[in-house]
Design a protein around this nucleic acid. Structure first.
Length: 222
DNA sequence: AAATGATCATTA
DNA sequence: TAATGATCATTT
């Protein structure tokens, strides 16, 4: 699919696939549907990238760099409740001197997001799952304040060498959790004494209450 | 039932 | 190894 030339074109495309099943979308894209997502956890996200014309790849950029827009699929149930947290970015564990909320990756990533809800209950086969109404979001002042607060708390702990004491309960709307191939993966961090050590890579995730509030605000539901 | 920690595929 | 795309599956 061609890269969308404008924000409006991207939105139009996303609206065009709303209401379609993943089976219909995959068929017209010529993409094979996996039986389950166990070994294809990112499949829905990649399918949406493909049909919306995102530039594929693993570069640390928005999916639509020229538009400054990040694409996120959002698994929801029939009641429009998000079923999973939303990965935002890998958490840097080093090089944090001088980084502030204003300059951090999380803020950049979340500056403008095209959310595409997908109704994804476990009991419904992948091919029959339906794409919901997409919406383009930028954080409100309130949302940004919450994100900034959590980001600061988590980053402070990282800087103080407390990474390994951080768990999913920290943060009201943003959490820090493992983001790795497995529990043996390692990346460099700093301990309490400021000495380098190897630890599990982590990522920032949006908690379900936060994405649920976005759905409410934009789609006026529940 | 919800939430946390663990894990899977691919690319570079 | 680290970035992208996330969901799985065990624990609470």
């Amino acid at each position: 699919m061609e890269i969308p030339a404008s924000e409006q074109e991207l939105l139009n495309r996303a609206q065009d696939i709303a209401g379609l099943t993943l089976g219909e979308i995959a068929l017209s894209a010529g993409i094979k549907i996996p039986k389950d997502l166990t070994k294809n956890k990112g499949w829905i996200g990649l399918l949406l990238e493909h049909v919306l014309g995102a530039s594929a790849g693993s570069r640390p950029e928005p999916d639509f760099p020229h538009l400054g827009i990040e694409l996120k699929s959002l698994p929801i149930n029939e009641q429009a409740k998000p079923l999973e947290t939303t990965f935002v970015s890998v958490a840097p564990l080093t090089g944090l001197v001088g980084v502030t909320w204003q300059t951090c990756y999380v803020k950049k990533k979340l500056a403008k997001v095209l959310w595409v809800p997908v109704i994804t209950p476990k009991e419904v086969p992948i091919s029959e799952r339906i794409v919901g109404t997409p919406f383009l979001w930028s954080p409100s002042a309130e949302e940004e304040a919450l994100l900034a607060q959590d980001w600061q708390e988590l980053t402070d702990m990282i800087v103080l060498g407390e990474v390994e004491n951080i768990h999913g309960k920290h943060g009201q709307v943003l959490q820090l959790r493992p983001k790795a191939a497995n529990s043996k993966a390692k990346t460099q961090g700093f301990d309490r004494n400021g000495k380098p050590f190897m630890t599990l890579p982590r990522g920032f995730y949006l908690k379900i209450n936060f994405t649920q509030a976005l759905l409410h605000r934009y789609l006026r539901i529940n």
